[in-house]
Simulated scan of single mutants.
Amino acid sequence: MIKTFLLLCLAAVSLCSWAQTGKPHFVAKPSDKSVLGSQKVVTHSLSIARAPDQVYHYKNAAGVVVFSDRPPETGHYQVRIYDCYACKPSSNINWQSIPLYTQQYKEEIQLAATTYSIEAALIRAVIHAESAFKPAALSRTGAQGLMQLMPVTAKELGVTDAFKPSQNIAAGSRYLAQLLQRFDGDITLACAAYNAGASRVDQYRGVPPFPETKAYVERVNILLQRYRKT
Rank of each mutant, 00 (worst) to 15 (best):
L180I: 13
P135A: 02
G142T: 10
L8K: 05
P52F: 07
N195E: 08
Q225E: 08
I81Y: 09
K164V: 11
S199E: 08
Y101T: 15
L189K: 14
A154P: 04
S91E: 07
Q167K: 14
G145M: 08
R80F: 04
I81C: 01
V217P: 07
G75P: 15
A196Q: 03
I123R: 00
Y227C: 11
I81Q: 01
R205C: 13
V159K: 11
N60S: 11
G197H: 11
F183S: 10
A132M: 03
F5A: 14
P208Y: 07
F5G: 05
A120N: 01
D186S: 07
T188H: 14
N221I: 04
H25P: 00
E73S: 11
A28V: 00
T153W: 05
A62T: 12
F210P: 04
G158V: 09
R70I: 01
I169W: 09
E212V: 09
Y204M: 07
A136Y: 15
K33F: 07
A19F: 00
R50W: 08
A190L: 02
K229H: 13
A12H: 00
E73W: 04
I93E: 01
T153A: 09
L8A: 15
L46T: 09
I81S: 07
L176T: 08
G37D: 03
L36A: 10
Q110A: 15
I187T: 13
L149P: 11
A19N: 06
Y194S: 08
R200L: 14
W18I: 06
I123D: 00
E73K: 11
K229F: 06
K23Y: 01
T114K: 12
S90I: 04
P89V: 01
R140M: 10
K88P: 00
V207C: 00
Y227T: 04
G158Q: 08
G185E: 02
L15R: 02
N195A: 05
L138H: 06
A171P: 01
K3S: 12
A162Q: 12
Y58N: 07
L189N: 04
V55L: 15
S17N: 08
V207D: 00
